Computed example of a mutant assay.
Amino acid sequence: MPKNDELRYGPLTETCAHLCVDMQRLFGEGTDWETPWMGRVLPKVEQVVAAHPSRTIFTRFIPAERPGEGQGTWRRYYERWASMTIEQIGWDMVELMPSLARFVPPAEVIDKHVYSPWEETDLHQRLQRRGIDTLAISGGETDVCVLGTVLGAIDRGYRVVLLRDALCSSTDETHDASLHVYHRRYGVQVEPVTTDVLLANWLVPADAHA
C-alpha cells in the first residue's frame, strides 16, 4: 500500500485547486443527514481554505424542493427523505458551515443536485479556464459525494490529492473502507495525504489576507 504521508508525484504548483465537497449546515447541524464528526475535520478544512481561499471551490448539495420531485430514483429518494427537502429544512440549511462561508469570495461556490459535481455544472470548464490540472479534495461524505467527485476527476484526467484528515462520513466503517479502496484500486491516480503534507508541498504563496 502506498505511504500516507507523501506526494508520490511531486509538489503542487499554481495548477492545483482545492475542491471542498458539501461542507454545509444540512450535514453538520442536527438534521437527519447530520454527519456526526464533521466538526472534527472542519478545522483541517478551514486550515486549507484559509491558506488558499482564492484557489478554493466549494460544492453545495441542493435537495429537492418537496417530496416526490427528482428524476428517476431521485423521486423515490426524496419520498424516503422528505424531512430533508427544502420545504422542510429551509434554504438557510443549504449554506456552507459559517466558518467556511466567510471565505466566499474569493472562494467560489458550485451548486449541484446529485452526488457528482461534474454533472449539470460548469466545474470542468471553470478549472480548465484557470489552467488547473490537479485537485486537492476535502469534505464529505467520503463514501458518497466525495466518491463521486474523485471518480469524475479521475475520468477527466485530473491529478487527485485526497486530504485524509479533512474527510468525513456518517459511519466509520464505510469511511475506512472507502479510503482502503482509494489506496488499493486507484493508487496511480489518487494520492491520500494529510493537510499538513499538502500545505507544506503546495509551492504557491498563501493568499495575502489569509
Rank of each mutant, 00 (worst) to 15 (best):
Y158I: 02
I110Q: 01
K44N: 15
W91K: 14
T31G: 08
P63R: 00
S138E: 05
D196T: 15
Y78C: 07
F27L: 04
I137Q: 08
L12D: 10
P2A: 11
Q24C: 13
S170M: 15
F27P: 00
M1Q: 04
V160N: 01
M84W: 07
W81K: 13
K112G: 11
E95G: 14
F58R: 03
V144N: 06
T134Y: 02
P117V: 08
T195G: 12
K112M: 05
I62P: 06
L7E: 04
P117I: 10
N201Q: 14
F58Y: 09
G28S: 14
D143Q: 08
Y158V: 03
D155L: 07
E29Y: 01
T13H: 15
R55C: 07
E65A: 06
W118P: 06
T149V: 00
L163R: 01
M84G: 07
E34C: 07
A166V: 05
G90R: 13
G68V: 01
Q189P: 04
A166G: 09
G28M: 14
D172L: 12
L7P: 04
M84I: 05
R55P: 04
P11L: 02
G68D: 04
H124S: 10
G187K: 01
Q71H: 10
V114D: 01
R66N: 01
D143K: 06
H175S: 09
P53V: 03
L147R: 14
S170D: 11
E108F: 04
A136D: 02
I89F: 01
L19K: 12
R75L: 11
T59K: 07
V188N: 15
Y77P: 04
P67V: 09
L19E: 07
D5Q: 06
C16A: 15
R25E: 12
L127P: 04
R126W: 03
D176P: 00
D22P: 07
C145T: 11
A64E: 13
Q47G: 13
E108M: 10
L199Q: 12
A107I: 07
R156T: 05
T31C: 06
Q189L: 15
P63M: 00
R8H: 12
R185F: 10
A200T: 03
L198W: 13
L179S: 03
F27Q: 00
M97P: 03
M1Y: 03
Q24N: 08
M38V: 14
G30I: 00
A101G: 12
G90D: 07
M23R: 00
N201C: 06
G68L: 08
R164P: 02
Y158Q: 02
S138L: 02
D143H: 09
E79R: 14
Y77S: 05
A200S: 10
A17G: 03
C20S: 15
R164F: 07
S116D: 03
P11R: 00
E87K: 04
